[in-house]
Design a protein around this nucleic acid. Structure first.
Lengths: 121, 121
DNA sequence: CGTCTAAGTTGACAGACGTCGAAGCAAAGG
DNA sequence: CCTTTGCTTCGACGTCTGTCAACTTAGACG
């Protein structure tokens, strides 16, 4: 009788296009400054913050902060909206959820999920 | 009676040292090739794979694959062990869990966790 | 030992990245 | 209209990163 070990690692590996897509998100977040920026925006009351709330937390010039915010915005991690004089940033919760879910799924065997894909709110 | 809206965003923002630490992990994974490498290793039978199992999936030279594996190893995402002629790589599940957990926590309000911090296995 | 195969190291190079100062644009208030 | 304040864009600079060809190291097997 053959070996019959049902593979414990049944999940299919990431295809190249998916990997490329996630890599864009990961690259955006893979920087101490940008990670803290996301964290600061998420932790801010109401889940949004204007740039003026953020610059004080860093020893960096305003253009540099603006640059990092642009990277996060273009990657889809943050949304921005101008209201009067101030520009408000907000975290794309769904995007962060997809990212966290993908990383969790990587090493977790296929089957019933522990966490539902949608965010709880 | 006062409004009593307990701030929905109570989680403290990431401190700089934590951010730097996580950024190292994220940088390691924030590359299409490395993301697929991790995925391939994780999806491989037994949760481990030798380099010879991996090189075929890419249009890259062996030194380049070796370089990416080194980055992942030094960041702590992968473990490697030489057994005879072959070097076997394995995913550090705990590390990936910490990463996924951190990203999930970023935008999720503080309070009772949905997922226990330790991996289920 | 000699040789073959697997994997890693070195050195080089083009391109991407993080940072800043200076200049630009947008809204609000004189 | 002019000025001020908040934020972004531009241009430049040094550093880091992904890639390869060439070479080296580590075991296995005669």
């Amino acid at each position: 009788m053959a070996k019959q070990t049902v593979s414990i690692r049944a999940r299919a590996p990431l295809a190249e296009p998916e990997a490329a897509e996630f890599a864009v998100l990961l690259k955006a977040v893979a920087d101490p400054v940008r990670l803290r920026l996301v964290s600061l925006v998420a932790a801010h009351d109401g889940g949004e913050a204007c740039v003026c709330d953020l610059t004080g937390a860093f020893d960096l010039s305003a253009p540099t902060i603006s640059h990092h915010l642009k990277v996060l915005r273009e990657a889809g991690v943050l949304d921005s909206e101008r209201r009067g004089t101030w520009v408000h940033y907000r975290v794309r919760d769904d995007v962060l959820d997809r990212l966290a879910g993908m990383l969790g799924d990587l090493h977790r065997p296929a089957g019933p999920r522990l966490v539902s894909a949608g965010a709880r709110r």
